[in-house]
Simulated scan of single mutants.
Amino acid sequence: MTTAGQRVKEVRKRRGLTQTELAKASGVSISTIRKLEQGERETARLETLRKLAQALRVPTMRLAGEPRKDDASAETVDRWRAVREALERPPVAPGLDDDPPTLGGVRTALYETEPLFSGDRFAALSVMLPALLRDADALGAEGRSVRVRLLQLAGWLMVQTRQFKAAETALERALDDSADRMEGAATVNTLCWLRLRQGELGKAFDLAVKWADETEPRMSRATPSELATWGWLLLRASAAAVRNSQPGEAEDALKLASAASVALGREYAPDNDFLRVFGPTTVKLKAAENASVTDRPDLVLRLAERIPFSSLKPTSNNRNRHLLDVADAHVKTGNYADAFEKLEQIHADSPEWLPNQRYARDILRRMISRRRTLTAEMRAMADVVGLPL
């Protein structure tokens, strides 16, 4: 199997560029390029590969190669072991359980558990979710709708915590059981996010475009749910395209998503689903994310000034991802105090979410590398995000 460095070297030579010329064209240090090509580093961050791909005029995935495997910490893998087993274990056959679950009981339990998902209460979910998954499976055909919703949430949680194989199992099961196009699209929205986190940018783009085409509503009579569903698929397509060095496709998808948000006129959650909240603010958040991916920190900060944060819940993953983009932009423009303040803000609002974000670790690493001494607060934050000092 070829490494990212071998692929970079191969394309660079085909383009007739020296390492120095590629470094100048891409903005990636010549030291990084040399280490990659000489095999001292197996791969690089997706942001680095995107810059190299843009300079070499190839899709990012041409350099990235194989999708990312599950790379969570041993502690995280152990925490979710029971959830993974519950997702993969065959359900108890009807009649073999002495105290079988009821549809009403499982539906009530799911309703009471949803705030744990929206609030990023990972410790509590690791305890409660395995039994709930087993009970939903034991319901058989009558529990289809409850089971689909639970699998959607479980799949999202597994993506969030980098349990990619388990996420794929949950989401594909939910998609197979979906009753209609809209229910299936809700699952595909998270499945596209899984592909993005795995680095499978082409698959994410194709999947999002296919489902966006199939769910595109007639604007003159579209329901809010149809607009929100279509808009999110377009945002996923834009996210995949911008990471895969396809700026035209990314901009086109973002413009269509913006049109859907304008038609909607507000932030809206289909079926009160916190995973699918969509509207003008969500589009602005994702526009700033695209600017961050393409290394335009000044634009990220300008866009951030137009976003009404008071309308966003502190536990909103989209809000907190955006705050990471803002922190990253502050680091790139040399404003380390404001960058660190954003990390502290996220940690105060979502203490169980932040430790699962490699992006936060990268931001803090770059911040620390520019300082001679560290404050006690920086050392504490390094412990939070799992950054060895």
Rank of each mutant, 00 (worst) to 15 (best):
L264H: 00
S245N: 14
A167Q: 07
V148I: 12
D213F: 06
Q160K: 09
A241P: 10
V262P: 00
D177S: 09
A186T: 13
A170T: 10
G202T: 15
K210M: 13
G140W: 02
C192V: 06
R195P: 00
A259K: 12
S245Q: 10
S145E: 10
L150N: 07
P217V: 10
M219E: 05
A257E: 05
V209L: 03
A239E: 12
W156Y: 14
S220Q: 05
W230I: 12
R236I: 04
A253S: 15
T190F: 03
A170N: 14
A212D: 06
G231T: 11
D176G: 01
P224M: 15
L151N: 04
P224D: 10
A239R: 07
A167G: 12
L234F: 06
S261H: 07
N244K: 11
R221Y: 01
G199K: 09
L201N: 03
P247E: 11
F205K: 12
A185K: 10
R181C: 06
L256P: 00
L264A: 02
A136G: 02
G248F: 04
T215A: 03
V146Q: 08
L191H: 05
A239S: 15
D137W: 11
R147P: 03
Q163A: 07
D135L: 06
D135Y: 10
M182W: 15
L150E: 09
R147C: 05
G184I: 13
P247T: 11
M219A: 10
A222D: 13
L175T: 11
D252M: 09
A212T: 03
S258K: 10
A136D: 01
R221P: 00
A250F: 02
W211V: 14
L153E: 06
D177Y: 07
V262D: 08
V159D: 13
V242N: 00
G202H: 13
L139I: 09
E200Q: 15
M182A: 13
K210S: 15
A250Y: 01
R195Y: 12
L235D: 08
Q246T: 14
D176M: 05
W211F: 12
P217T: 12
E214Q: 10
L171K: 00
T169F: 14
Q160P: 03
T223E: 04
A204L: 07
Q163L: 03
P224N: 14
W211G: 05
E216K: 12
A260I: 08
T161N: 04
A179R: 08
R221L: 00
M158Q: 08
A239D: 10
A212P: 00
E226K: 08
L171G: 00
W156I: 01
K165H: 15
A263I: 05
P224A: 13
K165E: 15
Q246M: 14
G143I: 13
G202L: 10
R243E: 14
A167D: 10
L150I: 08
E251S: 14
T229A: 04
E172A: 01
A170V: 08
Q160T: 12
